[in-house]
Every structure is written in structure tokens, then in C-alpha cells.
Design a protein around this nucleic acid. Structure first.
Lengths: 335, 335
DNA sequence: TTTAATTACGTAAACGTTTTCGCGTTACAG
DNA sequence: CTGTAACGCGAAAACGTTTACGTAATTAAA
């Protein structure tokens, strides 16, 4: 604190100009190796680190990226962040985190606050509460941005997603293979391509197997665990489905509880399957069949793409990167 | 991007000096309300937002805090971050996240990189792999810092923790009340006050009930799920404990698996209890009795303390804030 | 030998703010 | 009418970098 060690100080001690010091620190070709070494040694000795604000101001680079997501306390997103962090660290970048809480206004406010040079780029998984497509259509023109998992289609930006349609189709077939014919669908992310693709996979699999979909068997996600519990209990009592296909993790607890409260045995009376990155899925009672998304890899991949853009490297042809999810069969689907 | 809108631009359009604009934006008493309104209106119209780098450089304030934690993909920490974020947003601060992966070198490297004015303050939960006390003893002199959950004692800094000793004592008594006399301890965070306090609570409760502790019944955490599974299986086979008291969440999966593989029924043959913030604890097979820490509140409280320090408000007397954990009894302790 | 190119470094401006200091105007007391 | 505040604002320096440009010394080419 006391003895501010900055470039000027280094320059004075070494009797050279601050320009030379700056260039030496940045390993410029203009500076001789001898001088560079003198600078580097003294910098290390005095524990010099460049002032980020000054550096940002002058160079217009912050070496910082922002991650804008609905929540961090969520298995998928926290794993994604781990992947992002890993790559960011490799590149020497810092990571700012913003949670939108699925609030579209917060989402706009945060991202807007990032446009004045606070960060070099943004990684985001958009809020599902409302359609915010127009906003993002504008945003992608203003700052390097990569979408992951929750994306908007047809925007001029890189998108890292998973094979939602295919895996949902495959999962539905699994339920059918297990003898289910009345498969209820717990619908989340309805406003987003991911949610629509999952639902489409479910519907198409039903049709391919000659099962007529029924709107009565579809439950839309509501905000609040208790509400969903009520919804699912009503569903179970009124329409007696023989399976629950949950498209988002948030339905798991209410689904299990609802079955218990209604007195249904899993998987004998009803089978359950859910999109989820829960590490304890195998310990649930009974263990839960899940569609597990490669959350960590999604984070890594998205971050890699962003850094390619930031470093102006040509992106390998495609703007859409699709990773594979995996269906992990466990007791809750019982076969 | 094109038409950089900055203070100079505002000043030109309004035909006043940049000093006046700056002061108006900061609501200085020196400026008349009339002028302020003109500035504010134009700023809004042109979508002006101050350049953070310039502002930071001049004022030495970043409106940014850092959170340095072992992992974000962890129920406790991700909840803490939610709490921190909530408070930070109220104060208009940005949040940088750094994961140490329990690596003491990464821990030092990150925090050192924050000392050049990148952030105004730090919130941290220290790595448990080694003792890094000396480093922090120095660090707290250089930057406002608040510890939460995983702290070092006797440092001149605010510490937000939980009642580890008391709740561990209480939990052990609960196991004893359920008839257990041979209670194994799955030991984590051994290098930290939290880990030591939990263990002490366990030991003291045993003694108070006339049960002699045994070193054979203590298993230390190893890095890697498989290793812990092996350890616990050996423990079960060699010493037949009638309860497992796990001091950290990471033991839950290996503990459950070990019991299954060895053929022990929970809670009939053996009871299990663990520190944990797992939201699915009640859905496990059988549901898990947990000590649940108020993770969200810890984050909130820690952030509040940091902002008090940053705003030079006097801290209410005490440097140690202790929140209460809660013991949630479920099937795995079966009584 | 002369000229051109290269190397190694310095000067100074610039990035967009904040803030100190000073100055002119108005209001009011004496 | 003069002297003194108070008010409202502007000029300019400062924060610590980066970088365009200039220049002297050395080397290579002619």
C-alpha cells in the first residue's frame, strides 16, 4: 500500500524510460534481452503487478469475461462455471458472475452494464421466463458473446448446446420399452429452443410408437416447489400416468414427493425419468434414471469459443456446437 | 461502438465543462438542480454509462469484490455465492469468482493478482489442503477481507462461521440416543478450525456419555471418491461401527455405496448422519439425516460485513459472527 | 565510403474519469 | 456603496498504462 510500485518506479530505479519498461514487461521485440531481464528481475523483486484499471483504460482490453446465468446454485450451471473457469484460467482471464434469477429485467440490466468496456466478452445461458430474443439480436452486434445450453436460434453468435431432441426421443423410447403407454411430460423451458426440442423429441417418439399424445398429460413448470407438487399430485390422481418424463431438474423433488404422497411405488406403479445433473441421482429412493448433460464440457467448449473470437482466430466453420447427453438408466424406470 | 459516448461528448452537447458533467453525474452539491437534470436527461438519452476503467483508475475504487473459494460446484458454496450476489447487487457491486480447487498455490496466485486494485475487497473460504495461515496473516493487512465458513482463527479480520462444535456435539448425542455406541467419524477439513471443532464436538459428546473414542473409527478424507469408498468399506468390515458421522458432504456417496456393497441396511445395521446442504437429502434411500448449514445466510452476512468495512462503518463490536446450523433428523438415523 | 536498414530506446500523447483549486456572479449584511 | 459569503461552474492536473513516432547508434548493403 505504502510504496506504490508502478512502472514509473521501475523506470527510475533502472534509469530507463517508462516506455522501455512497459515494452519490456510486454516482451516487445523492440527491447534487448539484456534490458528485459533487468526489468523482469526488478519487477519480481519489487513484486510489481500492473494496475489493471490503467491497462484497461489505455488498451481497451480487460482480460475479463462475464458469465450471465439464471442461477449458480444449480448442478448444471455450477458445473458449467467450473468448465469456464478452467479455460479462463488457462488464458489468464478473470471471470465475473451474474445471476439473473430468471428475471428478464435483471438480465438486461446486467448485460447492459457490461457494454462500457467492463468485460471483453460474455458467456450466457438465457433466462427462460420470457422471450428476450430481440434484445439479444441487438446485443450480439455490440460485444463478443457465446450462448450455451439456453440459447436463441438464428442469432449471429456461437451457440453451444446439447442434442436435446435426440436424447429426449431416446429417453421416451426407453420408457416405452419399459412398457409405459401413458407418459406424462413435465414441461420446462417452454420459451426456449432447448425446451421445445425436448418436447418435440418426446412427442415424436410417442407418435413413432403409435401412442397418441395428450395435452392432459403435460404439466408446465411453475415457480415454487409447492405449486409443482400440487400440480403433479393432481395429474397423478386425475389421469393416472404410468410414467413421468421431467424435462428439468427442478421437477425431481416434487415428482418424488407427489408419488409418495399419492401412494404410488416407483417404478412399479409409475416410472420416472428426468433431465438432471444431480450427483446423488444414484442414491435416490429409488435411484433416478437421468439424462445427464455434459455440463462441465459445455462450459469448457463455450469458453474456448469465446476466446477464439477474442483472439480473432477463425472459428471452425460452424457456429453451432452440439455435445451429446447421455441417458443413464437406473431403478426409477425399472428395466 | 461507433460513436463513443463519454463525458466529453455530454459536455460538448450541453455546452458545459466536463468537470461539471462529472460532478452532476455524481450528484455533487456544487451543481444546480437545473444543470443536473440537463445532464441526467442527456445521459439517459444517449445511453451513457461511465467507463469503469477510467473511473477505477482515478478514484481507486472498482465497485467489485472477489469471492475466492475451493469450488463453485458444491451445494454449500453455490448457495453462499447466491447470498453474496444478492447483497452485492443491492450495493451495486460486481462479483469476481475464483476457484482454488483446494490448491494452495492457486489460492495464493489468485489473491495476489487481486492486490493491485482489481477489487475493493475479498470474501474467502480457505483451502483445506494445507495450512496457509501465515499467508493470510499478511494478506489481511493489505486488503479488506472477510472469511466465511472456512477461516483461520486469531487473524485480524471478520469471520463468519457456524456453531460447528455445538451442532456436532448435538448430532453425536442424537446418534447415541438412537442406541449407537460405536460411532465412526469421517473426518474432513482437518487443517481448519471448522474441522477441528466438529471433531471436538464429536469427541466431547462421546466422553460425556461415557463412550471411549477410538482412533480406529476415524477415517480421514482422501481426494477421490473411489479411495474413500475403499476406506469406508474397510472400516465397516474390520471394525463394524454402528454409525457413521460424516463431517463433510463429500463422504455421503461413498458412505452409502460402501454400506450397500458390504450388505449393511441403513438404518437397521448402521446409522448415517452428515454435514450437508444437499437439497435431495430427503429423497435419498433412505433419506439422510443432515446437519444443514445456513449457506445462503452465511454468504449474505459475510458480504454485508465486507461492505460495512468498505464503507468505513464501524463494525458492531465483534469480529466473529456465528450462525446456527440445524440438525434435520431423517430415516438414516432411524429414530 | 556512402547509404540504407535495423536495433534499442526515449518523448509525449492518449485513454476517460475524478478532484483540487480558483474565479466570477449573485445575495445579503453592514 | 462596500465587503463577504455562498453558489455554480471551469481549467487543469492526475491516476498508471500503452503506443505512435522520433532518433541515435550500430550493422548491412551498395
Amino acid at each position: 500500500m505504502a510504496e506504490a510500485v508502478n512502472i514509473k518506479r521501475l523506470a527510475q530505479e533502472l534509469n530507463i524510460s517508462i516506455a522501455t519498461v512497459s515494452k519490456a514487461l510486454n516482451d516487445s521485440y523492440e527491447i534487448s534481452l539484456k534490458t528485459k531481464n533487468r526489468v523482469w528481475d526488478l519487477a519480481r523483486e519489487l513484486n510489481y503487478t500492473p494496475n489493471p484499471a490503467a491497462s484497461n483504460l489505455r488498451s481497451n482490453k480487460t482480460k475479463t469475461i462475464a458469465v450471465v446465468i439464471p442461477f449458480v446454485a444449480n448442478n448444471f450451471f455450477s458445473l458449467s462455471i467450473m468448465g469456464i473457469e478452467e479455460i479462463a484460467r488457462q488464458y489468464g482471464y478473470h471471470v465475473l458472475i451474474y445471476q439473473t434469477h430468471e428475471n428478464i429485467e435483471a438480465e438486461k440490466a446486467f448485460t447492459n452494464s457490461l457494454l462500457n468496456g467492463r468485460v471483453d466478452g460474455i458467456l450466457t445461458s438465457v433466462s427462460s421466463s420470457e422471450d428476450n430474443r430481440e434484445y439479444y439480436a441487438n446485443l450480439v452486434k455490440k460485444i463478443p458473446l457465446v450462448f450455451f445450453d439456453r440459447v436463441y436460434e438464428d442469432l449471429d453468435a456461437v451457440k453451444v448446446t446439447t442434442d436435446d431432441y435426440e436424447i429426449a426421443y431416446q429417453a421416451t423410447e426407453h420408457l416405452i420399452d419399459c412398457g409405459c403407454t401413458k407418459i406424462a411430460y413435465l414441461f420446462g423451458l417452454e420459451n426456449l429452443p432447448a425446451g421445445k426440442a425436448r418436447f418435440a423429441g418426446y412427442l415424436d417418439a410417442l407418435k413413432a410408437h403409435g401412442i397418441a399424445p395428450s395435452a392432459e398429460l403435460v404439466v408446465n413448470y411453475l415457480d415454487g416447489e409447492a405449486l409443482n407438487l400440487e400440480q403433479i399430485k393432481k395429474l397423478l390422481e386425475k389421469f393416472q400416468p404410468d410414467a413421468l418424463f421431467s424435462s428439468i431438474e427442478e421437477f425431481i423433488i416434487p415428482a418424488y414427493c407427489a408419488c409418495r404422497e399419492v401412494g404410488l411405488q416407483i417404478p412399479d406403479d409409475i416410472k420416472i425419468l428426468s433431465f438432471s445433473n444431480l450427483s446423488t441421482a444414484k442414491l435416490l429412493s429409488p435411484s433416478l434414471t437421468t439424462i445427464s448433460q455434459p455440463a462441465f464440457e459445455i462450459g469448457r467448449e463455450a469458453a474456448k469459443c469465446l476466446f477464439k473470437i477474442l483472439h480473432k482466430k477463425q472459428l471452425d466453420d460452424e457456429q453451432n456446437i452440439i455435445l451429446k447427453s447421455v441417458l443413464i438408466k437406473r431403478e426409477s424406470t425399472g428395466c
